[in-house]
Design a binder for these strands. Structure first.
Lengths: 331, 331
DNA sequence: CTGAAAGCGCTTACAG
DNA sequence: CTGAAAGCGCTTACAG
């Protein structure tokens, strides 16, 4: 920076003003030109650490996801990154493995890095972290994670509509004996989808659907839950899974039990994660716009940085994607 | 920091020394105790921007991948993150979409953020970026990306052994008419696997295997390439794909052409990405230890930071995973 | 073992 | 419109 100022024949304060779009108006056009030319010439890149020290802004945001390796999150993260990049921000992404302690440790580490805000895509319903962050005046956007009080902006897919459309679809095919392999109730998504399922089933007058809670949003948990359903009595004719991984587990167990999907049992997943259209049968599922979710979360956070009171909730539409894992029940 | 020093009744220089493990030996044990207690009491987190400004180290590393949404990379990134986290470093991850310009822009942006080094997991064979980085004295580790001159440490899976084991497997099953759907030749992996394929096929005395280059490591490119192979003449009895996505595309086209896999055509993928065991048929493929690759790359970079001359190459073993997409040729 | 002080590279009120 | 100067929060030679 000193070098640039020297080369342009101005004071470094002036050079700083010339290079910053927000202040370059206070400098003569000729000077701006000269400084910019000198900067380019010298290959000048500003030292963000110094800027951040001075302005108390790092142009950096922390993103917490349960596990980057879960196919849901890469599109979310890319959506976030793209929007942030366009605004000169960078994302620091960390995985929490749905472990409250690790989540807190990562949060603290990001705080130490002077992030300007957070996007929390972890789904634990307990949120001492969220409350503490609010008390400390942090800026946070919640992704797919409801809170009781509207402390922060929230962006989520329309899970209720998604589950309802799945149940509508199955009822429309003539199914009456449904089961729901619910996501874990300690996650807000697990609980919400369960509620929507129950409500929709009742609405169609479907008697006593079987509901089993999975230990996690995993294939193994799906297998275990499906096994419990089959052990409990005569199999349902249709299953709504808490997400696609659970659906995949259910598929394994159905196949092992000699039940054909969809001839014997129809199956609906949730999320439309990559490659579920390649399964056999290709999975009917509820599509959630993950990338758009990430983009919207990033935008909301940027807005929140300017308006510390902003708490609006953005709900993005979901769509039922009918493929070949659902069919009318056997006559 | 001043507050901590005040609370502990020492000068802030002393407080700084007490809090830093590297210098706490130069401070009396009692003082360290008092300072640490005060820091905890006040919930002190050091300002990394200030530290970084002073020490010229950000404890941050830039990671460039082609596309986080490609299932290969999440495990790589997690491996990197875990090792870095253990050493007090944070990863800044950016996607380049295999676009040279975007890659350069992201590189520059990360440089502006004062990263201490880079892990480049992008596979373009042209590497003006790599040479420039070396000339500028940057610290870089190359992941799955060869260079001609050993400028930096490299970590990669043993592609040659992987491809060879695939060809051995097919030859052992009795196949003689092979095809290779090669990855793009502008990627080092594409070229290397092609060479290994050719060499292995010759070694088994297999006459004139068909080789087609794909436009990218994508399903669509795999479809297109497989179509070209079928158009060119009588179908091969076995296909080695440049990666799993290409294999998936090939599978689509085989199916559409009424050819059964593996009865009519055997198929081998590369990478063993998540869920290829759920395809039908479950894909025989070469497993690459992606997470370990990421971990090793992070370790190499940390080592390189201490030793600017380090250029060793680490090759991690690959394994053929035989599933149901390969079988003996029709008699 | 500890204090006093300089300085990392910026930004930004304050003068002029 | 531009210069001179202070200061962001640390670290680290330099004294003592």
């Amino acid at each position: 920076m000193s070098d640039v100022a020297l080369a342009a024949g101005v004071h470094k304060g002036t050079a700083s003003r010339a290079l910053n779009p927000a202040t370059s108006g206070r400098v003569s056009a000729a000077t701006v030109r000269r400084v910019v030319a000198a900067a380019r010439q010298l290959g000048y890149t500003p030292n963000t650490a110094a800027r951040s020290l001075r302005t108390n802004r790092s142009f950096t945001v922390g993103v917490l996801v349960p596990d980057l390796t879960n196919p849901l999150f890469p599109p979310v993260v890319r959506g976030i990154e793209n929007v942030l990049f366009d605004h000169g921000y960078t994302a620091l992404v960390a995985s929490t493995d749905n472990d409250g302690e690790r989540e807190a440790a990562q949060f603290a580490a990001l705080l130490g890095r002077q992030v300007d805000g957070f996007i929390l895509a972890t789904g634990l319903r307990t949120h001492p972290l969220v409350e503490a962050a609010h008390a400390d005046g942090r800026h946070v956007v919640l992704l797919n994670r409801a809170t009781d009080a509207p402390l922060f902006p929230v962006v989520a897919g329309d899970d209720a509509a998604g589950v309802t459309s799945a149940v509508d679809h199955l009822a429309g095919l003539g199914h009456t004996r449904l089961a729901h392999l619910a996501g874990p109730s300690r996650m807000s998504t697990g609980l919400n989808r369960l509620r929507s399922f129950t409500f929709a089933a009742e609405h169609h007058g479907l008697a006593d659907p079987v509901v089993v809670e999975c230990a996690g949003y995993t294939v193994a948990a799906g297998e275990e839950a499906m096994r419990r359903v089959l052990d409990a009595g005569p199999p349902p004719t249709a299953v709504v899974a808490g997400n696609d991984l659970i659906a995949l587990g259910a598929l394994h167990v159905l196949r092992a039990a000699g039940l054909d999907c969809p001839a014997d049992v129809s199956l609906v997943g949730f999320n439309d994660m990559q490659f579920v259209d390649e399964l056999s049968p290709p999975l009917t599922t509820v599509r959630v716009p993950h990338r758009a979710l990430g983009e919207e979360a990033a935008r909301l956070l940027l807005d929140r940085l300017d308006d510390p009171e902003l708490t609006k909730t953005v709900v993005l539409p979901t769509t039922l994607v009918v493929r070949e894992s659902t069919a009318p029940p056997r006559a």
